[in-house]
Design a protein around this nucleic acid. Sequence first.
RNA 1: CGGGGCAUGGCGCAGUCUGGUAGCGCAUCUGCUUUGGGAGCAGAGGGUCGGCGGUUCGAAUCCGUCUGCCCCGACCA
Length: 570
Amino acid sequence: MRFSQFPLNTLKEVPADAEIVSHQLMLRAGLIRKLASGLYNWMPLGVRVLHKVERIIREEMNRAGALELLMPAVQPAELWQESGRWQQYGPELLRVNDRHQREFCVGPTHEEVITDIARRELRSYRQLPVNYYQIQTKFRDEIRPRFGVMRSREFIMKDAYSFHLNQESMAETYQVMHDTYSRIFTRLGLEFRAVQADSGNIGGSESQEFHVLADSGEDAIAFSDGDAYAANVEVAPAKGPVDPRPAPTSELEKVATPEVRSIDQLCAFLKIGPQQCLKTLLVEGQDGNLVALALRGDHQLSATKAEKIPGVASPLCMATPERVLEVAGCEPGFIGPVGLACSLIVDYSAANMANFVCGGNEKDAHMTGVNWERDIAEPQVADLREVVEGDPSPSGTGTLHIARGIEVGHIFQLGRKYSEAMGAKVVDEQGHEVEMYMGCYGIGVTRVVAAAIEQNNDDKGIIWPDAIAPFQVILIPMNPAKSQRVREESERLYREFTEAGLEVLLDDRDARPGVKFADAELIGIPHRIVIGERGLDAGKLEYRHRRSETNEDVAMEKIVQFIMDRTTRD
RNA sequence: CGGGGCAUGGCGCAGUCUGGUAGCGCAUCUGCUUUGGGAGCAGAGGGUCGGCGGUUCGAAUCCGUCUGCCCCGACCA
């Protein structure tokens, strides 16, 4: 490709609404352009990257025996009503009517459609197991799209669905997909981790997420330093303290705490640590009454854990200030469990506190010297909090560390949730009809591109991993307009590289060297070759890898082989 | 959906408080010079100041309203 024939507007300035580095660089390098909130055009340079990611995914899925198909983006409401998700799925599901007022949705995922395919096509256990996949556009009407294509409303996903006679077969394919995903992300050149996860509203039991490690990641993941244990902090079990609860030593006392609402303010006001404070959160219960959840001041509530507790509404819903006033008699910020007239569930760590501080259930008041059993009835305990750095590993070996990650893949063992709801059955060896077991496996293709940049960049721009670079090599002729030699050599090299099967970008623009260097670095081409009079006199070319700070001279006749040796061929 | 903010040429912004000539940098086009790290000079094009309504002799500026976008909280590939 010649740069002169490739309209690419790189930006020097950072667009104002781009917050994270991958979003900024994707805009600056001209990979994407925004059309509307959560909707992006993929420009030619970006599509080259996207297609490379897709190719690797296809190759590995095919290698794993999965079968590619393609389902419509628009799906009839009837299927979603059958599975029950027409009601369950909130406004995130984009619903549309056709000209006959029939209801449809733009698919956020394809369990319903694939299960419909399976119940029509699969008759016998002899046809199982089967694993179908597609690479296709999804739409989720996110409340708050952000970070460019990292969390957009329309995005491209590789989704796969497997069907099985029994649980063992499902578990087997799940493992195959786990290994396949590991191969895919390895080939993509990403640093990643597979972690235990919540299955969310897709349903099912066993589930793991694949995270690309990056400080800007929206998820926190916990991993043990003692063994291979790794989990999303939402689900990693937090063990209770092993030591018995200390005995009460202080008297219960109400203290005036004017305008002290947060744990931080309380600690500053009373000159204590957050682990001596108890925070009480009121959430909606299943029966219309509020439920109080209590945690130690330095811990965070895990919404995922909380909404699984019987009696707590799912999805989790914090009580409104009006409801808080009704039940606790005060505004949020002063709630405490002493004399609170609703059911109370306490985190293990919080239940082990003694002589602690909590809200006084009246404005500008807190209680100090509070103790369970003596001042409040022995509470119901549960695991409510997110694990923190230094917690013991749930695996029993090592302690947990926290890292941030971007979720790029998720695999589930669904079981029979959809096959039962939609009657997807096959005949087994005994001639009986049985519902099939299902697994499902997703990769956010567009998100992978953003995650790769998030993990591979510097102050000059993107640094593409070889496997997904839009071009492998960039040729930069110095002042071609002035030097016929430089022009001819560049053209010759361009032909040779092309014939050798390498993807090469020739910067034949009549631009100053600085402009070309800056663009080459911004768009992140891994291998750069400079052709200038200076080197040609000595029969040499200048080579520099995008990650390197220095040039390397390479003899003209060896350059193609030199690059071939340095590019990933697969 | 709740809270906060923004909307002025393709991009980044000033001007709004205190009403009166739309301005700067980048980008684009032309010419000349320049050419190993985002060039210099000279010139040019491009904006109904988000929409609608109001106040006023006069509105980017004041008032009302609508729309769009961004940021902070509950989701997920």
